[in-house]
Design a protein around this nucleic acid. Structure first.
Length: 507
RNA sequence: GGUCCCAUCGUCUAGUGGUUAGGACAUCAGGUUUUCAUCCUGGAAACAGGGGUUCAAUUCCCCUUGGGACUACCA
């Protein structure tokens, strides 16, 4: 049992590709089979510097570990496995050998047609409402002419000759069931390009066979070309693998997920602060479900429970809101220390540097200094409010800045029945009371609440008349964590300073 | 145009020849006696249409409609 992920290195890992890789990985691991990475870089025009390295890093980040294929060591590319090379661009001799074999057996033939001729032919076919297919012009060239033209140095490609012999090409797709195609509707596909490189169709079949792939799990966009691949396996006398074509990931308008309609690079989601657990859980559920009402699945759960037979046939819209919800859930699952570690690298701004709060490590968590404690507390406070890591710096801002903006309009909330007089009274009372409280009382949220609520009652004020100004002075924000929570996190000194600053500016 | 695929709430989906068609996200209302969030409770929300088969179809078959993929010397 062996599956593969065979991306084309075009620059980044497509989120749909990530899901394909995930399914192939889950299926392999579940069956104690192998999983390999193969780079399909046969298109010279699409070569992108660093794309493979990036692909490898991203797969690794998601924990999609493979048994064979290229990997990174000290920044350089290496390969592991017994069936290499794993770059198709390094396998051209192998493809040549099999294409020669196919030509010799009449399953393929050289074609000298120019692009212009091909284009004209297609236009004519379109005008006649025919399917655009190669007209086999070069199939009928005499052996002598073929020989002559090759010797003369004419550019040519090798085309697959689709036999009409078995009147139907059939295969069983694990997701879709029995598939049947009429060979007459299948084009004589190019196998070897004029630059000597193979096309996907040849390279894919040869490699899957030679690398011992038993199950091809790939996107639905390959379904229409699968009969070509089956025909190739048959022509080469090989047993085809089992195919499973998984449904497409869709844009909100139901077209194939693409750029321009949002982020399609898996890296973009990492960048935006989605956790790997959330992304994996979410994309696994786009097209698959366990049939129960459980919805939180770790990678291990997925390895155990995943099954191709429960994979959906219809495409699934990539719904970012559900991803956000999953992400919020996994953020809340973290300990404050774990979350702090994830947030730290994102806090590089003019008012805050990572170094200021030290490194949050297992040791520093066990024995945190004052700054680390403060930071961890702040993280704990924003934890239930975060949807992505990207939001953390803004949410943490009022904890990390020395001062908070003064916003009189925000302070005087009619709804809260706060006017200037009330605000001044509230601040005065608050400062008076908190000065009499110990640091411990303030840091103990429950204790703090008890004392302050008592004060509000004694002063004959409404909760909102004190708590709203308090929260505004402490955070300077329209929306924020609650006043007691914030005061407890800020501590006595910072809280008093902020309340005093607001009182000063008011009077 | 041709080939092929697909079709349950807005979205992801469960489901069965007889169900009050279930869950989750989003949404709305309420609660957690300050905003926001978390959390809790409740509401609204779907079997594309038409024919069959059948005692009975959302479920099986056909057609229509709608959506999608492919249709390169890209993958």
């Amino acid at each position: 049992m062996k599956t593969r992920f065979a991306p084309s290195p075009t620059g980044f890992l497509h989120i749909g590709g990530l899901r394909t890789a995930l399914y192939a990985y889950l299926f392999a691991r579940q069956n104690k089979g192998g999983f390999i990475l193969r780079i399909e870089d046969t298109d010279q025009k699409r070569y992108t510097e660093g794309a493979t390295e990036n692909l490898i890093r991203t797969l690794d980040w998601f924990g999609l570990h493979y048994d064979e294929g290229p990997y990174l060591e000290n920044g350089g590319l290496k390969e592991k496995g017994d069936f290499g090379p794993y770059f198709q661009s390094h396998r051209t001799e192998i493809y040549k050998k099999y294409s020669d074999e196919l030509v010799a057996q009449g399953h393929a033939y050289p074609c000298f047609c120019s692009e212009e001729r091909l284009e004209k032919m297609r236009m004519q076919q379109a005008a006649n409402k025919q399917a655009p297919m190669y007209d086999r012009h070069c199939l009928f060239l005499s052996p002598d002419e073929v020989k002559q033209r090759i010797e003369r140095g004419d550019l040519y490609v090798i085309r697959q000759r689709i036999q009409e012999d078995p009147p139907r090409i059939v295969f069983e797709d694990t997701v879709r069931g029995n598939m049947e195609f009429d060979p007459k509707t299948i084009d004589d596909q190019v196998l070897i390009k004029s630059d000597g490189f193979p096309t996907y169709h040849l390279a894919n079949v040869v490699d899957d066979h030679m690398m011992g792939i038993t199950h091809v799990i790939r996107g639905e966009e390959w379904l229409p070309s699968t009969p070509k691949h089956i025909a190739l396996y048959q022509a080469l006398g090989w047993e085809p693998p089992t195919f499973a074509h998984i449904p497409l990931l869709l844009n909100p308008d139901k077209t194939k997920l693409s750029k321009r309609q949002g982020d399609v690079a898996a890296e973009d989601y990492i960048q935006k602060g989605y956790l790997r657990e959330a992304i994996i859980n979410f994309i696994a559920f786009l097209g698959w479900n366990p049939g129960t009402e459980e919805e939180f699945f770790s990678m291990n759960d997925l390895v155990e429970k995943f099954s191709i037979s429960r994979v959906q046939k219809a495409g699934a819209i990539f719904n970012i809101e559900k991803l956000e919800w999953f992400n919020g859930h996994y953020i809340r699952q973290k300990t404050p220390a774990e979350l702090a570690q994830l947030i730290l690298p994102r806090l590089q701004t003019k008012w805050f540097h990572e170094s200021e709060y030290g490194q949050i490590t297992e040791e520093s968590v066990d024995n945190p200094d004052e700054k680390t404690k403060y930071f961890l507390k702040a993280v704990e406070v924003i934890q239930t409010r975060m949807k992505t890591l990207e939001e953390a710096p803004d949410m943490l801002k009022f904890f990390l800045e020395d001062e908070v903006p003064f916003d009189e309009a925000l302070l005087m909330r009619e709804k809260m029945k706060v006017d200037k007089g009330v605000a001044i009274t509230a601040f005065t009372k608050l400062i008076e009371t908190m000065e009499g409280m110990s640091e411990e009382d303030i840091k103990d949220e429950e204790k703090q609440k008890e004392i302050l609520m008592q004060m509000i009652q004694d002063a004959g004020l409404k909760n909102g008349q004190v708590l709203w100004p308090m929260r505004v002075a402490l955070t300077g924000a329209e929306y924020s964590p609650g006043s007691f929570e914030v005061a407890a996190a800020l501590g006595k000194e910072k809280s008093l300073r902020r309340l005093q600053a607001y009182l000063d500016k008011l009077s």
